[in-house]
């Protein structure tokens, strides 16, 4: 475990994540997250679908796959235009922070090629490489973000006891590790077999909910 991974995965790393709920705001408003148990199930569903996909994209980027090809693969795995825009916005914000933290020509090139932002997991993977981290590190940071974002947001949205939220994340730990390992294995396959080997797991309610959330006149979180 490297300190650079702790920094990259830190919720206080200034990369814009605090303004996003990972779909939790919609799920809370629609009565699908009401307590710690439903939060855990929400996180679990997100982890094994979009979390797995994002972690594999990140690991592939760290392993040296072409970031622009991965950016296209992320587009294909994100049918919701709202979620594509969110991912690119977060990617742009992460790139800014990563360039300050770990200056690298690879990050500069990615920023120049995608000035409006590359997909966040792709940026994270390139940043992890710049920080000297491994593909598994990048997968772990990304998989953890898939659950920590809704868990943190739910503390604010439901006034959920923060200790319960932390306990949810702790109990999900082994699953986060397993998803990160599966993502890293898929990323390794993608390097030899092509990007079709990357997972494409989806969660329909996250897509539908994101589109609906974007149409709300008032909301606390950007997504």
């Amino acid at each position: 475990m490297s300190a650079a991974l702790l920094l990259l995965a830190d919720g206080r790393f200034p990369a814009g994540g605090h303004a996003h709920s990972g779909g939790a705001e919609t799920a809370v408003a629609e009565g699908r997250i009401t307590d710690a148990a439903t939060l855990a199930e929400f996180c679990r569903g997100r982890l094994h679908t979009t979390g797995l996909v994002a972690a594999a994209l990140a690991a592939a980027a760290t392993a040296g796959a072409d970031p622009l090809a991965l950016d296209g693969a992320a587009d294909a795995r994100t049918p919701s235009p709202v979620l594509r825009a969110v991912s690119r916005r977060l990617g742009r914000q992460l790139l800014r922070a990563a360039r300050a933290a770990w200056p690298s020509p690879a990050l500069d090139r990615l920023g120049a090629a995608r000035p409006r932002g590359a997909h966040q997991p792709v940026v994270l993977g390139v940043a992890a490489r710049a920080a000297g981290l491994t593909p598994l590190d990048a997968a772990r940071a990304t998989a953890y973000e898939a659950v920590s974002s809704p868990a943190t947001a739910t503390v604010r949205l439901l006034a959920l006891d923060p200790f319960e939220s932390a306990a949810v994340l702790a109990r999900l730990g082994p699953e986060v590790d397993a998803v990160a390992e599966a993502a890293e294995a898929a990323a390794r396959r993608a390097l030899s077999e092509g990007l079709d080997a990357l997972p494409a797991a989806s969660a329909p309610l996250l897509d539908i909910g994101a589109e609906r959330h974007a149409a709300w006149p008032t909301r606390l979180f950007t997504s």
């Binding site: 206080r12 814009g16 303004a19 916005r89 800014r96 947001a153």
Partner: peptide, 21 residues
């Protein structure tokens, strides 16, 4: 407008990336 995720002080002080953008 910048949406601040229920933490307006974070968006202007601790994580200013959305505002810079």
């Amino acid at each position: 407008a910048v949406e601040t995720g229920a933490c307006p002080h974070t968006a202007i002080r601790d994580d200013i990336s959305a505002n810079l953008e």
